[in-house]
Computed example of a mutant assay.
Amino acid sequence: MHDLPVREKSILAGLYFSKFDGEGLRTFGFGGFTEAFNVIGLTLGVRPGSIKNYRDEFDPLFPNKRKGWHQRPMREYCKKIYDSFGGLDLENFTSLLKQILYKEHDLDLLIEEVAESGCDTDGSFAKRLLTGQAAEQYFMNAFKSIPTFDGLNIRDTTKLGCGFDFQLYSPSVSLAVEVKGLNDKRGNITLTEKEHAIASRMGDRYFLFVVKNFKEKPIHDLYQNPLGEGLVFTKVEQHIIQTSWTTRM
């Protein structure tokens, strides 16, 4: 399903939130539709308004408080999606939508399954993952318009575990950018031990790009050399008791 065209993915997201309404929001951990449309729209690379419009397209078919596009017949390509997937229950439709939205879908679904075996059962994993993906897509959309990065090429390093998400480079320049996402205008930003170490080593060549306010309208802040930019990072150490199981062969 992850190979579907973007339009069909967007229609499926709209159908999901029309059918399941508030329950669908809670399943993904979203506090409202604006947040959901912003995060999912950026994740898919479409305008948030497109997800809303597809939700409104299906609203006349479901018992919610919205009237939707009841003044006209449903568009044929939307009806095809409804005929194919409109009968799915919450569990199966949620699984389908996650396969579509998660960037590393098989691995991310496995990590989510492990998280849910503990105490993460309120959709917070899905929200964190998708907010992070949305922030990364926001950066990829925006970096060319940022004067500091003018004329540089981009390389996605999110899955390389190197302490930053993107390399921006030219024959004479190599910069590292770590991207973080916040749902509100303010909140806590955490650097891992590796991210902190790389930021300390690279100094002015390391940037922290924070996308915030997904609940309303995403905006961003850019910090060059974040450890020396006036941001105060507090070291937090956690001592974990690890249990293992041994067998004799």
Rank of each mutant, 00 (worst) to 15 (best):
Asp3Leu: 14
Pro5Ala: 05
Val6Ser: 09
Arg7Pro: 04
Lys9Val: 03
Ser10Gly: 13
Ile11Glu: 02
Leu12Met: 11
Gly14Val: 09
Gly14Leu: 04
Gly14Gln: 03
Leu15Lys: 01
Leu15Val: 09
Tyr16Val: 02
Phe17Pro: 12
Ser18Asn: 06
Ser18Glu: 05
Leu25Arg: 06
Arg26Ala: 14
Phe28Glu: 01
Gly29Ile: 01
Phe33Pro: 00
Thr34Pro: 03
Phe37Pro: 02
Asn38Asp: 09
Gly45Arg: 12
Val46Lys: 05
Gly49Ile: 12
Ile51Ser: 01
Ile51Met: 03
Lys52Trp: 13
Arg55Pro: 06
Arg55His: 08
Glu57Arg: 07
Phe58Arg: 00
Pro60Ile: 10
Pro63Ser: 08
Asn64Trp: 06
Arg66Phe: 15
Arg66Asp: 14
Gly68Arg: 03
Trp69Met: 11
Trp69Tyr: 15
Trp69Glu: 11
Arg72His: 12
Arg72Ser: 12
Arg72Ile: 13
Pro73Gly: 10
Pro73Asn: 11
Lys79Met: 14
Tyr82Leu: 13
Phe85Lys: 04
Phe85Gln: 04
Leu88Asn: 06
Asp89Met: 06
Leu90Ser: 08
Leu90Arg: 05
Glu91Met: 10
Asn92Met: 11
Phe93Ala: 07
Gln99Arg: 15
Ile100Glu: 08
Tyr102Asn: 06
Tyr102Gln: 08
Glu104Gly: 11
His105Phe: 14
Leu107Tyr: 14
Asp108Cys: 09
Leu109Thr: 04
Leu109Ala: 13
Glu112Trp: 03
Glu112Arg: 12
Glu113Gln: 14
Glu113Val: 07
Glu116His: 10
Gly118Pro: 02
Gly118Asn: 06
Cys119Ser: 13
Cys119Trp: 10
Asp120His: 00
Asp120Leu: 02
Asp122Met: 01
Ser124Ala: 08
Ser124Val: 01
Ser124Arg: 00
Ala126Leu: 06
Ala126Pro: 00
Lys127Leu: 07
Thr131Cys: 09
Ala135Trp: 02
Glu136Gln: 09
Glu136Gly: 05
Tyr138His: 08
Met140Gln: 14
Asn141Lys: 11
Asn141Ile: 07
Phe143Gly: 00
Phe143Pro: 00
Lys144Trp: 06
Ser145Met: 07
Ile146Pro: 07
